[in-house]
Simulated scan of single mutants.
Amino acid sequence: MSTLTYPEVGATRLGPLPDGYHHLHHRAAVGRGRADFEAAGAAVTEWRMHRTSGTRVQASTARAEAGTTVRVSVALGPFRFTAPCEVVWTAYEKQRIGFGYGTRPHHPECGEECFVVDLADDGTVWFTVLAFSRPASWYARLAGPLVPVAQRWYVHRLGTALRRIVSAG
């Protein structure tokens, strides 16, 4: 049984993002051509992008599937934050691969985030992160305006890790 902590399940897949949350949108080119697209898609959905960025990931499946439970653990300086999530949608399409996951109880935030790789008509491989969130824990509320800064730092780090994975072939 799903125990997601927000009602707008799936909003990162089709939009629009719901009001009342901080919105995050990050897009970066990570490669070119079908081979890079396939490599990037596999790295995203098999948790390699997260792990290569230094994030600890414990997932109930080897590849993102709807219903997969995930515990993501990120270090910020001397602090480590663990974020329980659940995959709420996936895309394994000809020109789009990725997934969205939502927050579960004990996540410091409340909301949803997606990680998607697209193959554009010109051959560019784009990595996109789209998210909506608001504080759910006392320490996320206390951190206030630093949380969006940390989120932007994190998604930039993910994009850099994905670019490295793709360029390594």
Results as ranks from 00 to 15, higher is better:
Val70Gly: 07
Phe79Gln: 08
His50Ala: 12
Ala140Gly: 08
Gly33Gln: 03
Ala140His: 12
Arg80Cys: 03
Glu65Arg: 15
Val147Phe: 00
Thr103Met: 08
Leu17Thr: 09
Gln95Ser: 06
Lys94Asn: 01
Ala136Met: 14
Val155Tyr: 06
Glu65Tyr: 04
Gly144Met: 02
Leu119Lys: 10
Met1Leu: 12
Ala83Cys: 09
Gly54Thr: 05
Gly10Trp: 08
Pro145Gly: 10
Tyr21Pro: 13
Arg71Ser: 05
Gly169Pro: 10
Pro135Arg: 15
Ile165Phe: 01
Pro7Tyr: 02
Ala91Asn: 09
Val147Leu: 07
His107Lys: 10
Arg164Ile: 04
Tyr92Ser: 12
His23Met: 09
Leu17Pro: 03
Ala143Gly: 09
Gly67Glu: 13
Thr68Met: 07
Thr52Trp: 01
Val147Met: 11
Gln95Ala: 08
Leu146Tyr: 04
Tyr6Met: 09
Val149Phe: 10
Thr128Ile: 03
Gly77Ser: 12
His156Asn: 15
Ala120Cys: 03
Ala62Asp: 12
Trp153Pro: 13
Phe81His: 11
Val125Ile: 06
Thr128His: 04
Ala40Gly: 12
Ala42Glu: 14
Pro16Asp: 00
Arg32Gln: 13
Val57Pro: 02
Thr45Gln: 04
Val116Asp: 15
Gly10Lys: 05
Ala91Gln: 13
Pro105Gln: 03
Val166Ala: 04
Ala83Arg: 03
Thr61Arg: 15
Thr90Asp: 06
Gln58Met: 03
Tyr101Asp: 02
Gly67Thr: 12
Pro78Cys: 11
Val166Gly: 00
His156Cys: 04
Trp47Ala: 07
Ser133Asn: 09
Leu24His: 15
Phe115Met: 14
Leu130Gly: 09
Thr90Val: 15
Val125Met: 05
His23Ala: 10
Ala161Glu: 02
Val125Trp: 01
Val129Thr: 14
Ser60Thr: 15
Asp121Ser: 15
Pro148Lys: 11
Val166Pro: 01
Leu4Ala: 06
Val74Glu: 00
Ala35Gly: 00
Ser60Trp: 13
Thr3Leu: 08
Gly123Trp: 11
Val74Arg: 11
Val125Glu: 05
Val88Pro: 08
Tyr139Arg: 07
Cys110Tyr: 04
Pro108Ser: 00
Ala35Ser: 08
Cys110Leu: 08
Thr90Ile: 13
Glu46Gly: 10
Thr82Ser: 15
Val57Leu: 08
Glu86Cys: 06
Thr45Lys: 07
Glu109Val: 13
Ala120His: 01
Val125His: 02
Trp153Phe: 09
Glu109His: 10
Trp126Phe: 09
Phe79Asp: 03
Asp122Pro: 04
Ala168Leu: 09
Pro135Asn: 05
Ser53Ala: 15
Pro7Met: 11
Arg134Ile: 02
Cys110Gln: 15
Leu24Ala: 12
Pro7Ala: 10
